[in-house]
Amino acid sequence: MKRIHVVAAVIRGHDGRILIARRADTQHQGGLWEFPGGKVEEGEAPRLALVRELREELGIEVEAARPLIKVQHDYPDKHVLLDVWEVSGFSGEPHGAEGQPLAWVTPRELPDYEFPAANQPIVAAARLPDQYLITPEGLENGELLRGIQRAVAQGARLIQLRAPGGYDPAYRDLAVDAVGLCAGKAQLMLKGPLEWLGDFPAAGWHLTAAQLRKYASRGRPFPTERWLAASCHDAEELALAEQMGVDFVTLSPVQPTHTHPEAQPLGWEQATHLIAGFGKPVFLLGGVGPDQRQQAWDSGAQGVAGIRAFWP
């Protein structure tokens, strides 16, 4: 079955809200919400297809857009490649030129709307920022918490409380304070044994590669309302993350790092190749910082993750 190439747009307004459209009842997956876009014509460049589709469908002119994520999905009756772009600048007032209802929704509200199954990774990508801060080791608790507070004040929206010394009670106490600092401002991702999950309902969970290998066959350990992430280093671990139903991953190390000098770096070419076959948001980690964000986007990644380059 031939794969149908479709462009879709995560269109952001000045207030950060995202534009979605409702599919006509007569369409494939009718009645569900979607990100605006349409089919790429034979020989047409995806960006040009995006510009054409949004002009025809919404009456707007795209002024600023970048690749966000590519998702392959196989429905029983058709195979699609969703080529998704983030549109951050446009002119004109969007309207349903084909009579389709539109809605501007906050990223937080997106999961309240029913989308086709192929759109779930796009919903995740639309809700996630392009930087993922991982806390450093070797700091005393007060210093660590002050750093988290500064990071949140500076706009950090996704923070992992790293647990380098294993899973001890001190980490749990620290996690309670970190959850409080992030509440309503940033998404905190914790690490630790899955037995702790029930103690931190507001936090997401970031699995180690060892946990991924141990638990992947059991599937997702909690409902989709909570963020689930995993650390991956190769194609096998990415496949396990897919099996477990994670929302996003870190892929590392891209380049040599101070923290793991012994690890063999993937390099940009291999990282790009691995991302292309995955289809969920990927943060590149290891020897990268904010300056590599564009290169990460060009590789198909959601953005960059790091410790040293991001710590305030």
Rank of each mutant, 00 (worst) to 15 (best):
V176D: 12
P164L: 10
D173C: 08
D177P: 09
K185Y: 06
A126C: 05
R172A: 11
T135W: 09
L190C: 06
P169G: 11
R162E: 12
R150P: 14
L181R: 14
I134C: 11
E137W: 09
P129F: 00
G184C: 01
Y171L: 12
Q160H: 12
M189S: 02
Q131M: 04
G138P: 03
Y132L: 14
A153E: 10
V152A: 02
L194C: 03
G155V: 05
A163L: 02
L145A: 12
A151D: 07
Q131G: 11
L133W: 02
G165K: 12
R157M: 11
V152N: 06
Y171F: 10
A163D: 05
L158E: 01
G192L: 10
G142M: 09
E143G: 06
L174Q: 08
A126W: 00
R146Q: 15
L188I: 14
G165M: 07
R146A: 13
A175W: 00
K191M: 15
L190Y: 00
L144D: 06
G180R: 10
L145I: 11
I159R: 01
A153C: 01
L128Q: 00
Q154Y: 14
D177C: 10
E140D: 15
L139W: 15
A183Q: 11
L190W: 03
G138Q: 13
P169L: 04
T135G: 15
G180D: 15
E137D: 13
D168Y: 13
A163K: 08
P136C: 14
L161A: 04
P164C: 10
G180M: 07
C182W: 06
P129D: 08
Q131W: 08
L161I: 03
G192Y: 03
E137G: 08
P164T: 07
L181N: 13
G192N: 02
P129N: 00
I134K: 00
L144W: 02
A153W: 04
Q160I: 02
L158R: 02
L158M: 11
A170H: 01
Q131K: 03
L145M: 07
Q131A: 07
G147Q: 06
A175P: 02
I148S: 01
G142W: 04
E195K: 13
N141M: 11
M189V: 00
D130P: 00
